[in-house]
Computed example of a mutant assay.
Amino acid sequence: MRLALIAVLIMSPLLAQEKPEAEVNPETLAESMRRGVDFLVADQNPNGSWGGPTRTKRLNIYAPIPGAHHAFRAGASGLALAGLIDSGDTRPETIASIEKGAAWMKENLPLLRRADQTTTYNAWGHAYGLRALTRLYKRESDATAKAGWKTLAEQQVELLGRYEDINGGWGYLDVFDGFTSKRPTGITTSFTTATVLLAMAEAREVMGIELSDKTVTSSLASIERQRTPDFSYVYSHDHRMHPRVPINRPAGSLARSQACNAALKSFGEEKVTTEVIETWADRFIEREGFLSIGRKRPVPHETHFQISGYFYYYGIYYFTESVRFLPEARQAVHARKLAEVILFRQEKDGSWWDYPLYDYHQPYGTGYSLMALAWCKPLIANPGEPSDR
């Protein structure tokens, strides 16, 4: 008991340093977003994409070449481009960067497929490609060009249907059952499925994309099967049999619950009440430190509650997707708290990143953060008005 008390006293000052203390107002938000935009503009590849298979380390996640990196680049580029557009930055260099990114999307998204039968990382590329396409469609004034973005989005939705797991929903690995098939039979994960569904829901809302009822129903059912009574969501379909291992407890589910609650709510699930969303929003802010402990660690799932670094900015962004369903006044309260965290975590170079993933981590982390700040900004400036997508 005495040793435990001593440990708490020793650690208290260190934990206090982790508390966000950023000043949040429209000016500091605008400056933070400008720095993030500047990073993405400077970091963009000459061909218009972001990220690449460089900055390797001795420990890298499984990534069959070249297809896995096609997926990683599509996902990181989709997030970076969406973040640039959401920022509302109208400087000439930013517009030029957006146009270069749009051209890359038009040329490369139609080519994206799974690397081989062991991975379906392409689900991330299709989902975040859809996020970018939705924004390109909204900003386009030419009717023919808008139709082109919609057609490309319809193709991405069709490809997602093609790669849906046999158990419903989507995952990213298919290496453990020793079985290969036309449709994946791997690890359906609650959060990958939520990611895809939310991107599809936005595409339907903005572009009028038609979704397959069969695909939507089976993937929603997959998330439901992975939900526990307290609205934690287990990591994957197989984890249903182990709901109380650390990664599946509330602290391990902090980021997943934001996305999964938002996905179910977007498609009309009545069990996800305002109270549920409010509870998990409060819990996310209060326990953000658990996610932060995993930031920048190169080994996935090595820390408390088996958290990985890449949970962090994923959770930051999907917090905004979940809190959208709350009353406007409560959205404003949460927006200020979230903005404090984001501003506090910004790197000196203007980027945000949470996990060293080759050279994709800074583009995707910065894209997530800019989209989240774009949601926060109007709520902080005008607390009575809801934030637009």
Rank of each mutant, 00 (worst) to 15 (best):
L3M: 07
A4P: 06
I10D: 01
S12K: 12
E23G: 11
E31S: 15
G36M: 03
V37D: 06
V41S: 02
W50N: 09
G52K: 02
Y62C: 09
F72D: 13
L79M: 14
L81D: 00
A82K: 07
S87Y: 04
T94F: 00
T94Q: 00
I98C: 00
I98W: 05
K100N: 10
N108G: 15
L111R: 15
L112Y: 00
W124I: 07
W124S: 13
R131F: 04
L133S: 01
L133M: 02
L136N: 08
L136D: 08
R139H: 05
E140F: 10
D142S: 11
D142L: 11
T151W: 08
A153C: 11
R162S: 10
L173G: 12
D177L: 10
A199L: 01
M200W: 06
E205F: 05
I209K: 00
K214R: 15
A221Q: 14
P229E: 02
H237Y: 13
D238P: 04
N248S: 03
E270N: 14
I277Q: 07
A281G: 05
E288S: 07
S292I: 05
I293K: 06
R295W: 13
Q306M: 11
G309L: 06
F311K: 13
Y313G: 04
G315M: 03
Y317D: 12
F319C: 07
S322N: 01
V333K: 08
H334A: 07
F344N: 09
L357E: 10
D359F: 11
T366M: 04
L370F: 13
M371P: 09
W375F: 15
C376R: 09
P378Q: 08
N382G: 04
